[in-house]
Simulated scan of single mutants.
Amino acid sequence: MKPSIAFFDFDGTITTKDTLFEIIRYHKGSGALYAGMTLLSPALVAFRLKLISTQRMKEMVFRFFFGGMRVEAFRDKCAEFCTERLPGLVKENALQAIRHHLAQGHQVAVVTASAEDWVKPWCSSLGIVCIGTQLEVRNTLITGKIHGLNCNGPEKVERIKQAFDLNGYDDIYAYGDTSGDRPMLAIAKYGYFQKF
C-alpha cells in the first residue's frame, strides 16, 4: 500500500492573516511598516491595476524592507518570529488537521508563496516539509529579488513535483484558500478550499 500525502497552503489557510506584513512588522516595527507601505503605495496601485506582476511587487517590498540585510541575521529573526509571534496567528483547526494527518502516518508539506525563511522553522518544529518562495542571496546579503519564481499558482505544482514523485502516493490531500491554490488542489484526490 502506498503512503498518503497532504499539502497545505500557509497564509490564510493555516494562518489568520498574511504573514508577509507580520514578518515586516516583527523585524522593523509597525511604524516602519506603515511608512514603507505609504512610500510603496504608487507601486501598490499599479499592482492592483495589474500593471505590475505579483512577483515584481513582492520583490519591491522585499528590497525596500530587507535588501542589503545579512541573511544570517534575517533568518535568526525569522526563527524568533516562528517561536514568539507565529503561534498566535495559526488557526487551531488547521493545526489539528496537520496533526491528524501526521497521526495517520501521512507525509505533510506546507506549500507557500511566503518566503521559506519565516515558515520553515515552524514547519521543522512539527516535522513537516516546507516548500516556499526563496529569496536571492549574494555575498551573504539579501538582494530583495526572488530566486526563481514566486511559489504560487502553477509554480506550486511545479515545486511539489520537484520535491515528490506523486505516483508514489496513494491518497493526495490539498488545502488552500485562494485562486493561487487552485492548481495545487487540482492535483489532489481530496482538495479542500477554504476548509478552515
Rank of each mutant, 00 (worst) to 15 (best):
C130S: 15
F65Q: 14
C82V: 08
V111D: 12
G180Q: 01
E92Y: 12
L20C: 12
T13Y: 02
H27A: 06
Y192Q: 08
Y175K: 05
T13E: 08
I5C: 04
R159H: 04
V71I: 14
A97Q: 14
S4C: 03
L44G: 02
I160Y: 10
A46R: 00
T143R: 05
M60F: 02
K120Q: 13
V45F: 00
V137N: 01
M37A: 07
V137F: 04
A113S: 11
V157G: 05
T143N: 01
F10H: 15
I172A: 06
F21M: 13
Q194F: 01
T16A: 11
P154Y: 03
K50L: 00
K156T: 13
D165T: 06
L86F: 12
W122N: 10
P121E: 11
A103T: 14
L102H: 12
A186V: 05
L44P: 02
G168S: 03
G67Q: 04
G36T: 01
A6D: 10
V61R: 04
Q162W: 09
T54M: 06
S179W: 06
F81W: 07
V108N: 10
R138D: 08
Y34H: 03
A109V: 12
A6Q: 08
E84S: 09
L185Q: 02
F64G: 05
D177L: 00
G132P: 13
E158H: 12
V71N: 06
A103S: 12
S114Y: 09
A35F: 03
A79V: 08
C78T: 10
G127N: 14
F81D: 06
P154D: 03
E155S: 01
I172Q: 07
I131M: 11
E158L: 09
A109G: 14
A186Y: 02
V71R: 07
Y190T: 05
A73M: 04
L39V: 10
A115H: 13
R159G: 04
E80Q: 07
G180Y: 02
G144W: 00
A6L: 13
K58Y: 01
A97S: 11
I52Y: 00
G31E: 02
D170H: 06
Y173A: 07
Y34C: 05
Y34G: 01
Q194A: 02
Y175H: 07
Q107I: 13
K120C: 15
G67F: 04
L20A: 15
R182Y: 08
G105W: 09
K91I: 13
D165V: 06
H101T: 07
G180E: 03
V129W: 13
R75S: 09
H100I: 15
V119D: 14
E116Y: 15
V111P: 15
I24F: 01
F196W: 07
Y173M: 07
R99L: 15
F196L: 06
G67T: 05
S124E: 15
F74A: 10
